[in-house]
Design a protein around this nucleic acid. Structure first.
Lengths: 228, 228
DNA sequence: TCAACTTTGTGAAGTAGGGAACTAATGCCT
DNA sequence: AGGCATTAGTTCCCTACTTCACAAAGTTGA
């Protein structure tokens, strides 16, 4: 036992990272990467937390759920910490993403460079509109430019099966979102990111995250209204 | 005093609606609107909460912060409740929104019908790329189709001043987001919705909400990894 | 009019998250 | 080598949110 020479004990309670912490880990990861690109090798919790927009206490407590990857009196080794956060997030292995709905939003996702740089590969594009089916779009998959053809909606299950995609993105209009969701689930997808403004019903074991652009604006408007 | 015949006392503690509640009000509002369109006139907290994906107790507690708009033994009058939630959210008055960055994401926002149907009007489009400046795009402003020309970035302050926009949306690449943010703030904007993957620094009194598409995917990937 | 039933609104208990302060480990300087 | 300065990791407390359970209020039917 006790191979702990200095740093890097495994991590403590392998389960039980609070949701709030998980939601912040990607931010920490991104800021660390940008520090690394700037040539910074070591950073304190104080400095890093400031760049992430959180308090240093919160930052340190968040990290304590993963393990003990810093050095007291010094701070954190940027690349070492980056590695451990990315491992925790699963960015080490590439995740296959199928995007359903190739309208403006879908295209924005396809051209979003942040996807591929964080371990995601778009492996399928699906739409049901004749004008876009068979259209060829270029995405960057793990750094390489890849041309993807938009496939018709009927092939959804085939594509999910063939590409072994793990994540489905719903970027369709609201009225077909639930139908698409059901088919993604029955094709084996258990993680769904939903941009359509509807509450999706899914069986247990399937996780849905929702991004609603109008909801965010409405929250801003609420606070805006609460000032003279 | 006491004009309270039956229903509709003002609301209780005019301050102090929890953030978590505010974040759910837009969902309640949207589901109520869809019920109304389906011809439903009355709904119980149980049924409505189910459609919103929350527990009925949470739903009732959320509403209790606004006031007492239901009828015991019966439920809620759909249009009556819709009105009060929308008033609380400020959807009654139209909010002017300026979108900075007319790439794929900006275009997705412009064509997103959910904006205008919930009291938002896109009053300005700004970009700094010569190819898109002066391009004319059609948005729906309060139900009417409106053609908006993309204006150059240097005119940002002028546009905010002339249109009296209250909300700024940053849909630019990461590297110019902070600069755009600073200019929005100095032009008088106090509510910002940020799609760029950076943590914005703003003075006190300015509210920033952030939507990061990659972060959402990373959260999904985290949970996906936590299953063999 | 009264009793049975439905459903809201709320008080109280339980849980999770945030903030500050403390402890302990490490590097640096003398 | 030893003390000092720095900074990570942890503990404790407090606030905010959620859940539960019940009483108040209203409707319906006899």
């Amino acid at each position: 036992m006790s191979i702990s020479l200095g740093k890097g004990r495994p991590r403590k309670a392998d389960r039980g990272i609070p949701d709030a912490t998980v939601a912040r880990l990607p931010v920490y990861h991104r800021v660390l990467v940008s520090l690394s690109e700037a040539g910074v090798q070591t950073v304190s919790s104080e400095a890093l937390a400031a760049k992430c927009g959180v308090s240093s206490a919160k930052f340190r407590k968040d990290l304590s759920y993963l393990g003990s990857y810093g050095t007291r009196g010094v701070g954190y080794d940027v690349s070492y910490l980056t590695y451990h956060i990315s491992r925790e997030l699963g960015s080490a292995q590439p995740w296959g993403v199928v995007i359903v709905g190739v309208g403006n939003l879908g295209r924005a996702l396809i051209s979003y460079r942040g996807f591929t740089s964080r371990g995601f590969a778009i492996v399928g594009l699906v739409d049901n509109h004749p004008d876009v089916i068979c259209e060829s779009l270029t995405a960057t998959e793990l750094g390489n430019l890849v041309a993807l053809k938009v496939r018709p909606l009927v092939e959804l299950e085939t594509i999910v099966g063939a590409t072994k995609a793990q994540i489905g993105v719903i970027a369709t209009p609201a009225d077909c979102a639930q139908g698409v969701c059901d088919r993604l689930v029955s094709a084996g997808i258990r993680s769904i990111l939903n941009f359509a403004p509807v509450v999706l019903e899914v069986p247990n074991g399937v996780e849905v995250r929702k991004v609603d652009l109008a909801v965010e604006l409405q929250i801003l408007a609420f606070h805006e209204q609460r000032r003279g």
